[in-house]
Design a protein around this nucleic acid. Structure first.
Lengths: 118, 118
DNA sequence: CCAATTGTTCAATAACTTTTGAACTAAGGA
DNA sequence: TCCTTAGTTCAAAAGTTATTGAACAATTGG
């Protein structure tokens, strides 16, 4: 059970930009970037949208090649495709994330900690 | 007769990204970047869309703060707001333009020369 | 097996975006 | 003044995207 992802050379700039042009999706990407390396499951993002709507936005991100989703049991673990994006569009992701951090009109990235309970 | 433009601190990242996510507008921006400094009138872009449609896309770019339009007689001279974009979102415009140049799925920027006829 | 958890799909709707042609304005040149 | 050039505005049509709730599927733990 693997989900469809474009390969690196199929990632399209206008599609990536369009996908990042939505505030919910930009927030998802910022959150992923802030926890980079850690695979996060979808329900991490439930403060950003309803479950159904999240499914929609996460599919858009995945289909655009911005994120990767791996099926692990009943979870989908989501990661940023940083290496692929950097290879295809050097500097783009970093400048978008830095720009988002500078844009005071956007909410700060959520700081849920993810330590295991002791 | 001046047209409405957002000031620098009003430029919003998701709006800019959304606006650049359209292939016609991305092509306009690439062309402006390739002729940087030169103010170009709207009809420079008639190969990209119809006159009416161009008016629509150029308004979107202007309202997002990506371009500036100055009324000069019967022309609107369009320039990239590079300094403002660089101030607000450092590196973003450069990486978008570089990414567009790398994206072989996008058409090469049109090379109309603009020498005055002899 | 049963129930809970995680997330998807579907159909409907609402909201927005893009594109078009026809009519228009405003400036400039003959 | 009349014609042309440059571009806008408007309303309609077409297309696309976002959001919702209800129903569904798959896995896991008891």
């Amino acid at each position: 059970m693997t989900l469809p992802h474009p390969n690196t050379d199929q990632i399209s700039l206008p599609i990536v930009l369009g996908v990042l042009g939505d505030p919910t999706r930009l927030a998802i990407v910022r959150y992923l970037a802030s926890k980079e390396g850690l695979p996060l499951n979808c329900s991490r993002f439930l403060d950003l949208a309803s479950k159904t709507n999240l499914s929609y936005h996460l599919a858009k991100l995945r289909e655009a090649g911005v994120t990767r989703a791996e099926v692990v049991g009943t979870n989908r673990m989501i990661t940023l495709r940083r290496a692929d994006l950097d290879a295809r569009f050097p500097g783009l992701l970093d400048s978008v994330i830095a720009a988002a951090a500078d844009d005071t009109a956007l909410p700060a990235v959520g700081g849920h900690d993810l330590e295991m309970p002791a």
